[in-house]
Every structure is written in structure tokens, then in C-alpha cells.
Design a protein around this nucleic acid. Structure first.
Length: 201
DNA sequence: GATAGGATGCTCT
DNA sequence: GAGCATCCTATCC
């Protein structure tokens, strides 16, 4: 099964593509993760998106072709990764929020020394990137050219997917108006929902 | 189990 | 300079 034409599949609308990424496998070197939780971020009509205020140095990859990796740095210490979707010049991406390590578990454990259980190795977007060893240097890499970092379609579409508000998104865009978080119900690797809390200096 | 607070630096205004 | 698509540890049930 899988996707007949992966590039064309990912070029669809982020909100439509996001649930189809559940069950797909993202590989980076020795480690592979089966995706269990994602969030869609769309272009200029989405106040929660990095691309809402137009193109900047950071979000440039979102405006490129579908099937590339968008990696960004946040909170002074964490990297999060997205799969770019949509057409060129139509900024869209799907944030990979959590997954299950299906290969290279020894490497993942070494990178995530604080994780007490294997289900915590990639339970959260920054944890997922850390377990895979992804950094800002991987921003913009093509996931479909068979390189060290690549995405493989699920063997079959996941029959049961849940949907709800996005996690940690500030301002408008974080509420029920944008139920663009998708996950596999009852999967132990799905991250707990947390609403956005403003930080004091 | 839950909640609170600190860490830490890139990115954009 | 302010804000951030977060995680970890400590502490309290």
C-alpha cells in the first residue's frame, strides 16, 4: 500500500495530509520512529503558524516543495521537526509531536538518558527530534530522496484517528477553532495535552 | 497522580 | 528586548 506518489500526496492540504502521516515511519540514521501524533500548521490563514506573518529566514523551508523537513529551534534548547506539505509558495507543514521507536532503540536511549521508560523516548516534539538526533543542520533536507533522513508511508492507513485542539499554541489558533492535532487513540507514546502558559521574565 | 517554576538562546520587531 | 508549536526536576498530595 502506501502512497502511489509520495511527493504528490504530501503536496495536499496540511489538515488533510496530517492524519495520513500517523503510522508512517521517519528514519534518521540508525533510529526509526513510527509517528503517533501530529499537528497541522497552515499558511497565512492560520494564526498559530510560523508563516502567519509571511516569509522569514526561519520559516523559508515551509514555502518550498512538499516532502522536505522543517526544523526549528525553540525555548532556547529544543528542536522540533515538521514535514512540509502543500504547493510551492503555499506555506504549510505538519509538526511531528510524538512517535514510537521501532529501530535503533539503544541509540535513542543513549540520546535520551533522562527517559525512564521506552514510551517516553519520543513522547513530545522536542523529545522526538532528540531521539532521532535531528538538529537545525537538518532543516530543509528532502525526506523522499532516500538519504539518511527519510519518510516512509504506512503500510495501510490507520483506521482510528482522534482529533482535537493543538497543544502549546499561544493566542488565537490554540483553541477549538483550529482542531488540527491528530493522534492514535490509546497509544502510550502520545504526549499529554498542555495548554499554552505565558512565561514571566 | 498533579502542579509549579526554572532553564536557555534563537528569531523577529 | 520580548516571546517562544518545550522539557525537566522538585514537591505535594
Amino acid at each position: 500500500m502506501g502512497w502511489a506518489d509520495p511527493r504528490a500526496h504530501l503536496a495536499g492540504d496540511a489538515v488533510a495530509v496530517a492524519p495520513t502521516l500517523l503510522g508512517a515511519v521517519l528514519t534518521a540514521g540508525d533510529v526509526a520512529i513510527r509517528i503517533t501524533e501530529v499537528e497541522a500548521y497552515r499558511g497565512t490563514d492560520d494564526p498559530g503558524s510560523h508563516a502567519f506573518r509571511g516569509r522569514t529566514r526561519r520559516n523559508g523551508v515551509m514555502f518550498g516543495e512538499a516532502g522536505r523537513l522543517y526544523a526549528y529551534f525553540t525555548y532556547g534548547m529544543h528542536v522540533c521537526v515538521n514535514v512540509v506539505t502543500g504547493a510551492v509558495d503555499e506555506p504549510q507543514a505538519v509538526l511531528l509531536r510524538a512517535g514510537e521507536v521501532v529501530a535503533g532503540i539503544e541509540t535513542a536511549r543513549a540520546r535520551r538518558a533522562s527517559a525512564r521508560r521506552d514510551v517516553d523516548l519520543a513522547r513530545g516534539p522536542a523529545r522526538l527530534a532528540s531521539a532521532l538526533g535531528l538538529t537545525l543542520a537538518d532543516d530543509g533536507v528532502d525526506l523522499l530522496d532516500g538519504g539518511a533522513v527519510r519518510l516512509v508511508a504506512p503500510a495501510h492507513p490507520e483506521p482510528d484517528t482522534a482529533r482535537g485542539p493543538r497543544t502549546g499554541v499561544s493566542g488565537p489558533g490554540g483553541g477549538a477553532d483550529y482542531p488540527w492535532r491528530f493522534w492514535l487513540p490509546d497509544d502510550p507514546t502520545v504526549s499529554p495535552y498542555r495548554a499554552h502558559v505565558p512565561r514571566r521574565r
